[in-house]
């Protein structure tokens, strides 16, 4: 009794298989790239007030804050405080970023009562969680 041979593969089937194999190889190559390219530096968070992008809405000043993580690892619960000095008083505005990936950036808006381009405004990174 002769052994039945599997049917010959059609061209479309061959093409889709080759394309699929290419996609899987790219995916595996990508994961290897992640291993090679990624360092293991802990999160390093910086926050910068974008004074050029201040927006005025009614009597409020919307100040964009750019928060960046130059470390390789992600940070969680990043706490930023914007301190606005009005006369003798200091008003603190807190910004909480749930999650900031390694080498990632996030943008937040602080709502101020004084024009940050004239008043004294400082931005501080207070805390974050490291995985």
């Amino acid at each position: 009794m002769s052994k039945r041979r599997p049917p010959a593969r059609e061209l479309p089937e061959l093409v889709t298989l080759i394309l699929s194999l290419a996609v899987v190889l790219v995916l595996i190559g990508g994961v290897v790239y992640v291993q090679v390219a990624r360092g293991d530096q802990p999160p390093a968070i910086a926050a910068e007030a974008l004074l050029d992008e201040v927006r005025v809405e009614g009597e409020r000043f919307y100040l964009p804050i750019e928060i960046s993580n130059s470390g390789d690892q992600a940070a969680e619960a990043v706490r930023i405080v914007v301190v606005e000095r009005v006369g003798e008083r200091e008003i603190e505005h807190e910004i909480l970023i749930d999650y900031l990936a390694g080498h990632g950036t996030a943008k937040a808006i602080a709502v101020l009562s004084e024009d940050p381009r004239r008043a004294e405004v400082t931005v501080e990174v207070r805390s974050f969680q490291q995985r």
């Binding site: 994961v31 992640v34 291993q35 990624r38 690892q73 390694g102 990632g104």
Partner: peptide
């Protein structure tokens, strides 16, 4: 997806 290391990703695949 942003913090799994390459070893974990490869194991999952």
């Amino acid at each position: 997806g942003t913090y799994l290391d390459a070893g974990q990703l490869m194991t999952m695949l």
